[in-house]
Design a protein around this nucleic acid. Structure first.
Length: 470
DNA sequence: ATGTCC
């Protein structure tokens, strides 16, 4: 691999062959050695029609479907730029919601076990069918897809701040349920308000350290405070939409005269029927994902109110699997671009017009879910942010699920975590073992590289008190 | 990630 070190946390993948732009990897040397074959995917993405600046990789980059997870690529629709479902991922709008309690960890300690026992049955997850909210009929599901959290609020779920503190005000524009296939709708009907499995979780956390007190205060966070972090996506609906759209684009690519080095990079011009239909279906899945997290938050609120009397206020909700049409300056010239972020988080800088007014001065909250035994981070966007204002999204796997499950048993892991004072409510022993902390990169090293590369700034570190595992 | 293969 032709890698040139530009800076301590920046490497360039030199242009060659069909690459239209270079690759840029933001990582330390140690993290780079974990990136493995995913750098070949960074190269492949650089060949996409209309790609601008570079094919970027975040510090937690690893192998994914077509695009690497931890990849950022922007294309210019005016220059034949494409949109690719593989650049968003199968779990469309997978993301993180963080809520802050008016409660300290010290106050929670005596009732933590009772709280976890109450959350356990209140959070649907794993293989079981059903979510916390079954839409009345398909028309109501379509309203969820079109209006996202705005519809949930209209139906009496949640509060105004849940929209104000959610990316895009709780709903992405341009969603068209007409582009969502029959099977996707069927799968979506019974999963609103459910975690799923894999690395998805609902955690009760403690603010262990604050690195930037004024920004933390603006976000609504202070040391010792109890928080709830929810990490999940758009479940079977998003998965079905991605699969349906990839299949269609494999067909249409030929008629648009597009050639890609990997068929998993199936794509279509943004300004084509196939491209526009994908974006409309993707937006519908994005709204489903927000409502999913919105409803799980409501379930957590109810349990917290019953057991502790505490309130849960939304800090922020942000997706790390999404494509968006955004304005960015390229060589000093503003252009509208289709920015793919897959396992990468938007990180708007202070002063950005898309921020809610009360966060305008501080920058956008960036939520980084860690692994069970370690920590999660709250970051913020910085002026002059790189990679179209993007940063990392999590720790990133280093062990396969199979390897992980072989290295520890679920019961052993539960005992180990409980000995550390972390209460665990798994949905399956196998699923728990697959997610043991050693299966992931060191999230602290990922955050350090992101900050060192000028992608973001640390605001707070959160540590788990209790884990409800998907 | 995913009713881990329609």
């Amino acid at each position: 691999m032709d890698l040139t070190q530009i800076d301590r946390y920046e490497f360039r993948v030199e242009r060659r062959g069909a690459m239209r732009v270079p690759g840029v990897v933001f990582a330390s040397r140690a993290l780079l050695s974990d990136a493995g074959q995913s750098l070949e995917q960074v190269r492949n993405v650089a060949t996409l029609p209309g790609i601008v600046e570079a094919s970027y990789a975040m510090p937690d980059v690893h192998w994914g479907y077509g695009f690497p997870i931890g990849g950022v690529a922007a294309t210019d629709p005016a220059q034949g730029g494409v949109v690719s479902p593989g650049g968003v991922g199968f779990d469309i709008s997978c993301g993180v919601r963080l809520l802050a309690a008016d409660l300290t960890a010290q106050e929670l300690a005596p009732v933590l076990g009772r709280l976890m026992d109450a959350l356990d049955p209140a959070v649907p997850r794993g293989m079981t069918r059903g979510g916390v909210w079954t839409p009345h009929d398909r028309d109501e599901l379509r309203r969820i897809l079109t209006d996202g959290s705005r519809h949930a609020l209209e139906r009496g779920h949640g509060e105004q701040r849940d929209l104000d503190r959610c990316e895009d005000g709780g709903a992405v524009d341009g969603a068209d349920p007409g582009q969502v296939g029959e099977r996707a709708l069927e799968r979506g009907l019974h999963q609103v308000g459910s975690l799923g499995s894999g690395n998805h979780f609902l955690e009760v956390q403690r603010v262990a350290e604050v690195y930037d007190a004024p920004v933390a205060t603006a976000f609504g966070l202070h040391p010792g405070q109890v928080c709830v972090m929810i990490h999940c996506g758009s479940r079977g609906l998003g998965h079905q939409i991605c699969g349906d759209q990839v299949r269609r684009m494999e067909q249409t690519m030929r008629q648009y005269g597009i050639q890609v080095p990997d068929r998993q990079l199936a794509c279509a011009p943004v300004d084509s029927p196939a491209g526009q239909d994908y974006l409309a279906a993707m937006a519908a899945a994005a709204n489903y994902g927000r409502v999913n997290r919105h409803m799980l938050a409501e379930a957590a609120r109810r349990v917290f109110a019953e057991v502790t009397g505490a309130r849960l206020d939304l800090v922020y909700d942000i997706s790390h699997n999404l494509a968006k049409l955004e304005e960015h300056e390229v060589d000093g010239v503003p252009r509208w671009l289709c920015v793919h972020r897959k396992g990468a988080t938007r990180a708007l800088p202070p002063g950005h017009p898309d921020l809610p007014p009360d966060l305008r001065a501080t920058g956008q909250p960036v939520l980084i879910p860690g692994t069970m035994g370690t920590a999660s981070y709250v970051l913020t966007g910085v002026p002059g942010g790189r990679a179209f204002h993007s940063t990392c999204h999590g720790a990133g796997r280093v062990q396969s699920r199979h390897q992980a499950a072989r290295s520890v048993s679920g019961r052993q892991l539960r005992d180990r975590l409980e000995a550390q004072g972390i209460a665990v409510r798994p949905s399956s022993w196998r699923g728990l073992a697959e997610e043991h902390p050693g299966a992931y990169k060191d999230v602290a090293a990922v955050v350090e590289a992101g900050e060192g590369a000028g992608l973001c700034r640390s605001v707070a570190r959160l540590v788990p008190l209790g884990v409800v595992k998907g």
